[in-house]
């Protein structure tokens, strides 16, 4: 049944290849969906012979789709897992990765929590459930209520690897669907704390974006610089929770795909990334 669907999909793309040029399927990170949408709109204005279809669903879904052939580009907001590299090798697929933008992950609390900066160790303590009250990190006497993403989220995986050192999030973490839901929840729950792409949290009422302390000195760095992300400190890595947003493609890809990626990396493409509150490469 799946196979026949796949054949039908191939047949349809085959047809459109003849008449109107290629169709590119883009799938993956929910963080990147809106950004990709903007890129595709701008690209298709200039080049209407190509159709690009975008779906979200999480970084993990994007790679699964890339490996089973139902997507041409996987949008992935984290590094590949070893298991995913193994799966690619098992299917004899060569993957190549292009970084298309940078992103800072910010931690936010409700303004009533009374904290504005945390160290990485404190973040780890809070999100693994060892720190249960904001009082323990110098804030108000309020119990911590954790909010996070589902496990297919690249942000979830990135945060776990880089802040929790691979340990599990506390069981009491509320799992919500998408970063926008986290914004909503934390702005209404005075005990709430959550993490996500910095662009989602800028200028949202009721939220405080946490400054992350650099180990070894007393500095703390904010991922935000007035009303846009802190480009400098995210690019240099001085803000500790920064990551690369990647396009992953099969090596045997069509020409149309590399043309699209060329556009994304161009000045115009990178301008769109900064308009969407992500961090352009240069």
């Amino acid at each position: 049944m799946l196979a026949s669907l796949f054949v039908i999909a191939l047949f349809i793309t085959g047809c459109s290849d003849d008449r109107r040029g290629a169709t590119i399927y883009l799938k993956g990170s929910d963080t990147m969906v809106n950004l990709c949408q903007k890129w595709v709109e701008a690209y298709m204005k200039r080049n209407d012979s190509v159709r690009i279809i975008i779906t979200g669903g999480g970084s993990g879904n994007g790679i699964t789709a890339l490996l089973n052939g139902s997507a041409d580009i996987a949008c992935v907001s984290r590094e590949l897992f070893p298991t995913e590299i193994e799966r690619a090798e098992a299917t004899k697929t060569q993957l190549s990765t292009t970084t298309v933008a940078l992103d800072g992950i910010s931690v936010v609390v409700n303004e009533k929590a009374g904290i504005s900066e945390l160290s990485v160790d404190q973040l780890k303590g809070i999100f693994t459930g060892k720190i249960k009250n904001y009082r323990e990190v110098g804030g108000a006497d309020l119990p911590v209520s954790l909010y996070g993403r589902e496990s297919n989220s690249g942000t979830f995986a990135f945060f776990r690897e880089n802040i929790l050192g691979g340990e599990d999030f506390a069981r009491s973490t509320h799992v919500l669907q998408g970063t926008a839901a986290l914004v909503e929840a934390v702005s209404k729950d005075k005990r709430g704390i959550a993490y996500g792409s910095v662009g989602y949290f800028i200028d949202k009422p009721g939220l405080v974006i946490i400054r992350v302390k650099t180990p070894g000195n007393h500095d703390s760095v904010s991922p935000v610089d007035s009303n846009h992300p802190n480009y400098h400190d995210i690019r240099t890595g001085r803000y500790l929770i920064s990551r690369k947003l990647n396009f992953i493609i099969r090596d045997s890809s069509k020409e149309a795909i590399s043309d699209f990626i060329g556009f994304v990396l161009s000045d115009e493409g990178q301008k769109i990334a900064s308009d969407m509150k992500f961090i352009p490469l240069k």
Binding site: R87, E150, N152, Q177
Partner: peptide, 17 residues
């Protein structure tokens, strides 16, 4: 807060290999 059987399937089936 609790997690139900149905919500678990809905939230996780998309991601598993």
């Amino acid at each position: 807060s609790v997690r139900t059987m149905t919500a678990t399937i809905a939230a996780e089936l998309g991601e598993v290999s």
